[in-house]
Nucleic acid binder design. Structure first.
Lengths: 300, 300
DNA sequence: GCTTTTGATATTTTTTTTCTATCAGAGAGT
DNA sequence: ACTCTCTGATAGAAAAAAAATATCAAAAGC
């Protein structure tokens, strides 16, 4: 059963006249007669009743008509799916992210708007450490990654600043500095800074250490932790202090307070990273939606 | 976009290997390569990524796959619709009936069973007088008719007895005979019999008059009415008496009582009538479901 | 009785599809 | 590094399918 035959069948069923249907289809009438005949032979069923003067549908033809129209519509949808995919309005995107990105309202509302606007793009999200995400992006195993803090440049990757927010110091409520309005990093003389397990020069760990070094404070670090919620948990347990992005304030834990810093440059930045050579058009669609907060970012 | 190309595309997408897909489709590999190429050209989109050793779907190809499968399923449904229609399991039936048929539980449950069993056969029902239905059946404007009482034979038509039920006499409650257990037609000496507007020799009107003539009673008739509910209404209004099939008892009207007759042969019969030369396979399906209560019927 | 209308058929031409044979590039094994 | 194998692409011939042209046959209208 060929597409063409279905098209011809529907035309004849609608015109109930071979000649008119043929001219509508821009073919000669015998071609139409033959295709209908072939279709009837293949289905072993007469589809039209020809009584020398009028053409009418047989019961089988009538039953077929609705399904034939549906099948042609399905073929149109195939075409539509490809066009959509090419325009990046359909397909799927694998998105990696650092856990704390899912606490930033701007990021969440951008994602929400994207899924609302492009319901045919399926999102696969997975949480990874910054360094792992960069590798996955370079290898094409992730379409895009949301990472925090600085990272090494790579000719295979592009990036874009998503969001910048102040760093706060997470202190146990019992800590002597917890009653101050603003905390100077220089006041934190005792060792005990909790950091993430990022390699040197990458991610929030780097931003944290940079802030302390700017303040001229030498502070000892604890065993690195894998994510910020753990870090805040350890602060509550009195095992140290931690610098965290402001968005972490949504994570309210008894025994922990978040305090602003005197240093206005102590910020954390979220960036979107993607592979330059990605063949996925849905990626361009995403990039078209994500606001470009600043060009100047990149290497520390 | 040809059916064949969709089939090929799905095969390659499933195997991710042109050679294997080709042998699965029982074609040579170059034919497959060319068809895929043609498809990609028509859609102006690369569907497979060939990297000399492995074949993989592009994002567009992945988006297309689901729709392609759906389209192929739709084509199968076209085929299925025709097969169903040929076997009489799909299509539509135009059914005519006399109003009182829709009060007979046996008829109703047969119809219900039929629509349950063959949900893809759409029923169009329309009420007509017996004589009109016979003409519509002969002309092919009705597939089948449910008529009451005797009717003229016609070489173009077949029929089958559906149901036989006693005739009851509908009397005003104030009528002197209304207190009797059984009424003898001979007791109804006063004129005032209400009859349907059937031509002589056809339908309930004939059965009614036959019963009276068998009882040797000459009874005058009133202006004929078009249906039985009207007739019972007129009985309630004291405008006469009427012989009605037992099924009419479901129609309970204040001021009217239904009373059995002494004559055991005073019955009314419902028959199914259809055109011998009908091309509609759904008709055979219906006939296969409707029980054949008796062969001997037909002309009075 | 002739003309017109309409779909079917015959035959040729054109287009499409498939096949066989062959190529070219990339890994694997030696 | 060399050869072998695996894989999909390509070329050209052969086969199949589709379409066009010309013509026919039946029936309705004048």
């Amino acid at each position: 059963m060929k597409t063409r035959q279905l098209l011809y069948f529907v035309a004849v069923a609608e015109e109930l006249h071979f000649g008119r249907a043929a001219s509508r289809l821009h073919v000669a009438q015998p071609a139409l007669s033959q295709q209908i005949k072939a279709l009837e032979q293949e289905l072993e069923t007469r589809l039209f009743e020809r009584d020398r003067r009028h053409v009418s549908l047989t019961p089988a033809g009538r039953a077929m008509l609705a399904e034939a129209r549906e099948a042609l519509a399905a073929l149109d949808r195939v075409r539509g799916a490809v066009v959509d995919a090419r325009r990046g309005h359909r397909g799927h995107l694998r998105i990696g992210y650092v856990g704390s990105a899912m606490m930033v309202p701007e990021i969440l509302s951008t994602l929400l708007a994207f899924t609302r606007h492009y319901p045919n793009i399926r999102l696969e999200t997975e949480e990874h450490a910054v360094e792992d995400q960069l590798a996955l992006v370079s290898d094409g195993l992730l379409d895009v990654a949301i990472v925090r803090g600085p990272f090494a440049d790579d000719p295979r990757r592009c990036h874009r600043l998503l969001h910048e927010e102040p760093l706060l110091i997470a202190l146990p409520t019992a800590h002597p500095l917890a009653r101050r309005d603003r905390v100077d990093l220089a006041d934190l003389v005792h060792p005990g800074l909790l950091v993430l397990r990022d390699p040197p020069g990458v991610g929030l760990q780097d931003e944290t250490l940079a802030a302390f070094s700017r303040a001229g404070v030498a502070i000892g670090t604890r065993q690195p932790v894998t994510n910020l919620t753990t870090m805040v948990g350890l602060v509550a347990a009195g095992m140290g202090v931690g610098l965290v992005p402001a968005a972490m304030q949504v994570h309210r834990l008894p025994g922990v307070g978040y305090h602003p810093l005197a240093d206005p440059d102590a910020t954390s930045r979220l960036a979107l990273v993607w592979r330059k050579a990605s063949p996925n058009p849905a990626l361009s669609t995403l990039l078209g939606v994500v606001p470009d907060r600043a060009a100047g970012m990149g290497t520390p």
